[in-house]
Design a protein around this nucleic acid. Structure first.
Lengths: 374, 374
DNA sequence: CTGTTAGCGCATTCAT
DNA sequence: ATGAATGCGCTAACAG
């Protein structure tokens, strides 16, 4: 009740006048000036209050806050960006490998952004090769404050060069090669894949096929290494016939299944680099009347929604995708707030977890025999 | 070759100087002034060229364009928004029912935005009830030029009231109730559901269960109506026991399955309001040893990725989600460009399509008999 | 057809 | 602890 009715009516009128006029053009802007006028402070003081800067008397602060609330004031992002020479937009660049991955990444980033003045801008990239040379333009024209790179972009040296040049902080999700000056959050793909392979080995499998992902995603290679490592330490040579190419898509799992089913003797287990392809194998198995896991164990990687939707539910390696994006966003925010100190770059590695479900079991030895006399 | 080396070197130096200095703060802004200086035009002329306004001599236009290109100029969104009193941000508001839906919506919107100066901002809404009253604040502080509403927000009168008040154009995706002043793009949910039900009827089913979606999504009700309509015109009364509650999530399909399987006699078919729940039913059927479609036909709605990933692949009603979002975005863009003429609001209805796959077939009559003597 | 002059709403010196 | 003045990069009236 500090300000009298006269003020109130003025402002309230200003607030509703246009929407009542039918043409409904645009709401009259309530600016920092209006707040200043109403609270009896200068615009600078209002600015101080709004940005939580020191050197404002508590009671003054309170008055300003009340006025802002009363006027339903909201800072104008554009003006703020322009004057402050920085934006509040974070760009998320991704190439759509699987919808679930994208959604999880988004969710994680958005979670971290909740309550922050920053916004998330989506940049789907179709063909990241033809993307080269455009990064700077995009950053500049969209006025991005920071960017989050997901694979395969997070390992593209050219893109990172451009980013370095642009001067905006960027964080890589699931990048593999360390890069000075650029933080990265990832999981230990190699270790995780080794773990999964050992799980299969522990179940008794000896002929384990591996379904690779898109080779431009380095995680795909890291997982393959883990598979090789585990096999070799178990004294099992890598059989090239058991290594099948794929591209992370469901359809490529379907295709791979054909090749795998044609193998003689057929492997007793398949380790797919991600869940989408694993689901493809499971579907193909159904169609060929091959029982999973009795005749064929199938395991995936990611623990995406898919893995628990198909039947049997897929044993997989959980990759905390949302958490990775959350962390990446957190790092960006720190970089943005505390200045970009290239020295204290954080590289974070999050934990993976083996999720045992129903698609893998001990090898059905009759299966091998049955094949051998074919 | 209009401008000489002197100019060139100056600008080029300006372009690279900072990134070479190690501290990598921010690239020096190339402004409209630089372009004006280099091309020998005034900033207003440059502005005209950049915005494709008339009244510029072609050769002048060319010179400006070249200068801009040479300088690697990119307009500053913030300044443009501030001066032009309009932003280039389109907000996409959604509550995450199923990841696939969200991704499809996004893809459609992003497709339409390609090449446009507009950007897409994501606004996930957890609890849309507690969202009331915040819409205006969000629009204002983020400086949204327009918004796209997806269900259930696209049918929330309070939210739409706020939107009307805010004055920014908004388009509803899959809204059901027509609303003056707000365009909407949808499919004919009722008709489509009726069609699907008739398909099942045509297969010979008489006991068809219906799995409802989240009741706050009006599409859920429309689909239910279609089901009822088809049944009634076939002279089959609606059996309340066959109408099961759900919420569009996979898990609710799983739950619903238990109830459905306990029914005696068991229905020969289930029509689920969306694919996620249908996938839940299929999974549960596997677990209970109920063969789909031999012992139970299951059909879904949406034709999401899921539908063709589970086994058997689900017969479903394709809803062109991406296309709907594309169209919605198109409408927003028109509204933004040509002014918001409330008179010529377009309500668009896109086509659905029955996608016949493997999860539905004729009823297995022995099934009925078998149940009856139980 | 083209240029000049003013701001847009805010942050930011530098006064006080 | 507070305020006046200046300008961010651009668009928008107006003049020519």
């Amino acid at each position: 009740m500090t300000s009298r009715s006269k003020n109130d009516s003025v402002y309230q009128a200003a607030k509703t006048t246009d929407s009542a006029s039918g043409t409904c053009k645009r709401m009259p802007m309530v600016t920092i000036r209006d707040v200043a006028a109403m609270s009896g402070a200068s615009i600078k003081t209002v600015s101080r209050v709004l940005n939580n800067e020191p050197n404002v008397r508590p009671e003054m602060r309170e008055r300003v806050l009340q006025a802002a609330h009363k006027l339903n004031y909201h800072p104008n992002m554009a003006a703020r960006s322009l004057a402050g020479r920085q934006s509040y937009m974070i760009g998320l660049f991704y190439e759509n490998p699987s919808p679930n991955y994208v959604v999880n990444i988004q969710t994680g980033a958005l979670d971290r952004l909740r309550g922050e003045p920053y916004r998330l801008l989506m940049f789907p990239v179709e063909n990241f090769k033809e993307f080269h040379g455009k990064m700077i333009a995009i950053i500049r024209s969209s006025g991005l404050a920071g960017v989050i790179l997901t694979p395969p972009l997070s390992n593209d040296p050219e893109i990172m060069d451009e980013l370095d040049q642009s001067g905006v902080p960027y964080v890589r999700v699931a990048g593999t090669e360390p890069r000075p000056g650029s933080p990265c959050v990832a999981i230990k793909d190699m270790i995780a894949a080794r773990e999964m392979t050992r799980y299969l080995l522990g179940l008794g499998h000896r002929r384990i096929a591996f379904l690779r992902g898109n080779p431009v995603h380095p995680a795909s290679n890291a997982r393959f290494e883990g598979y090789c490592y585990a096999l070799q330490s178990a004294g099992i040579p890598i059989d090239p016939d058991l290594v099948i190419a794929g591209d992370f898509r469901f359809a490529s799992g379907l295709e791979a299944a054909r090749k795998i089913f044609a193998l003689n003797p057929r492997p007793t287990a398949v380790f797919s680099s991600n869940d989408d392809m694993a689901a493809g194998i499971v579907q193909a198995a159904h169609e060929h009347g091959i029982a999973v896991p009795r005749q064929l164990s199938v395991v995936g990687f990611d623990d995406s929604q898919l893995a628990s939707i198909v039947w049997p539910r897929i044993t997989t390696m959980r990759q905390p995708i949302s958490a990775m994006a959350y962390t990446a966003t957190d790092i960006i925010l720190n970089l943005l707030e505390n200045g970009w100190n290239t020295e204290e770059i954080r590289n974070v590695e999050l934990d993976h977890a083996l999720i045992i479900r129903d698609s893998a079991g001990p090898p059905f030895l009759a299966n091998v025999a049955e094949k051998e006399d074919a």
